[in-house]
Write a protein that binds this DNA or RNA. Sequence first.
DNA 1: CTGAAAGCGCTTACAG
DNA 2: CTGAAAGCGCTTACAG
Lengths: 343, 343
Amino acid sequence: MAKRRVTSRDVAERAGVSRTTVSFVINKVEGVHITEETRQRVLVAAQALGYVPDATAQALASRRTRIIGLVFSRSYHHLTSDAFLLQIVDGLLDVVRQHGIRLLLDSVENRDREDAYLNLARAKRIDGIILSLPRSDDKDLRALAEEGFPVVLIGRLPDVKICSVDVDNRVAARTAVEHLLSLGHTRIGCITNAPPSFTAPAERLRGYREALEQADIPFDQTWVRYGDYGPESGFEAMTSLLQTPDLPSAVFVASDVVAYGAMAAIYEHHLRIPDDIAVVGFDDVPLSRFFFPPLTTVRLPAADLGRKAGQLLLDLILHQVEPGRQVLLDTELIVRDSSGKVA
Amino acid sequence: MAKRRVTSRDVAERAGVSRTTVSFVINKVEGVHITEETRQRVLVAAQALGYVPDATAQALASRRTRIIGLVFSRSYHHLTSDAFLLQIVDGLLDVVRQHGIRLLLDSVENRDREDAYLNLARAKRIDGIILSLPRSDDKDLRALAEEGFPVVLIGRLPDVKICSVDVDNRVAARTAVEHLLSLGHTRIGCITNAPPSFTAPAERLRGYREALEQADIPFDQTWVRYGDYGPESGFEAMTSLLQTPDLPSAVFVASDVVAYGAMAAIYEHHLRIPDDIAVVGFDDVPLSRFFFPPLTTVRLPAADLGRKAGQLLLDLILHQVEPGRQVLLDTELIVRDSSGKVA
DNA sequence: CTGAAAGCGCTTACAG
DNA sequence: CTGAAAGCGCTTACAG
């Protein structure tokens, strides 16, 4: 505690060079030629003194904090992300780490505290920001991006030229429903993952609708329910769906976690899966293959989403990519038991 | 981008005061009396200019970054935490936010990269650190704490005087097993949540053993299997347990997530839960009540763990608590269907 | 190839 | 009650 901090000045003195030189060798600055001998002297001195550059001072002087922010929306967190946020973080950490960059994490309540990341940027605490599941009506975000502050979205916002990475929710959902159609189902219900005011749920619902219409099955609103991230909402939605006079023979639930609740509701009504009702989820939460029965679902490449978002953000910070670049990652249908055997 | 940054000097000039005064009113420094009129002038000027203090400069000058680090072990992450890390983060964010403090997140691989947080501290990037599920053989950690760097553990380390918050895993496990005993079970298997080299798994196993012995049932190693965080490990462990000649009538799985796999294995053997085999988990992952059947388990107060860890760390940073304080939070047995009806 | 010096934007004793 | 000035520990043009 009491021991004085070792600074670059100490290293410089011990090595008999200037602080400039110390800075150059410690940071491996390119384009500057330092004699190998001098370099070694500095390195040895630094080593001997246990010198670790002060990150704050470096940040102030270089105008780069080498910290990026990841802000997730707390309503999203509300379970879906229990598996994903961590995967995203994993992917993200994986790429930023290689660049010596750190990750600051914050969450945003449903609406309020949206200034959280605004302040993060204004106070220059971070060099760039990644937003997971942004709200579409977020003004601050637009402002920030327009000022040229590096921001990358995980999930898209309509008509905004902000970098983003996402999956094609519509196509993915269509694939899932086409799978049910191919099994011979015609009475297919749909439970969204969240309220349709968000982009992803709306897209998934649209994919469901497109698949039906393409098979000449009229879209029927009475077979649609809106989930709300958690299993509770799936339980309620399915319970309500089971009240309809004409029971569906299959249901597409646009979220595995919501599907868990839906499956519980089906069991509670003494119906079997997939025999009485086939179920297809969305996300491929790691747990899904261990559910009973194992859940057929669409795999969302969460870690890749994080990795790609990180790369994009780093490129943005270094001005190596134009703002507005949208990246779409592939999804994959994972067929398990909950949808029944392929005909 | 091009517009010059607004600094405290600009605010000072506009308000006709010194930067000192600006600093005082912006930071609401106590013990300094500023005329209300001056204060207002500063506030108005700051507002008009859109002044936001540069966090990095503040950190360098005040020697406090106002960032704390949360480092989780990646093997832990390996699913159990999929629910918990987020809850911990939530609780943590909840308390630190009120103090204007930010959260830096990093993970540590099984063994390597343990220097991750060491460097975080040495480079003074953070004011303190919270470690989730630390390895018991971590030397750097000890060194760091001994230097007086604020560190709080979530989960305990034996014989170390480092602040920590934890639950009493032994007692909690005993409660869970006593519940099975009270239901008349005598042949009770055990699947740990992780290898017994970690503290928590060892304690939970000990609780299992104590409960049995207290009921005069000899502890039998052949009914013990070691999980490894994920459902896969539970599936394997249970499959192996189902190979024993004398089948258990109940199993205590020291992790809900591992229990999911175990339950899948039970179903795969065409056995029913709880009729053929009763199952009790540990953690109360949010999903557990929606599993089929809903899982009886021990609730781990994850958000409270995060909150308490945050409070402790802040106290430590402000020297308001002696290092070494250990906090134990209560757990609660949540009885659901997987353990059967109470006799 | 290396160094002297200014500067990053704040805070904080110390005066008065 | 308020200000002048040093200092936090680096980086980075600019010289030479």
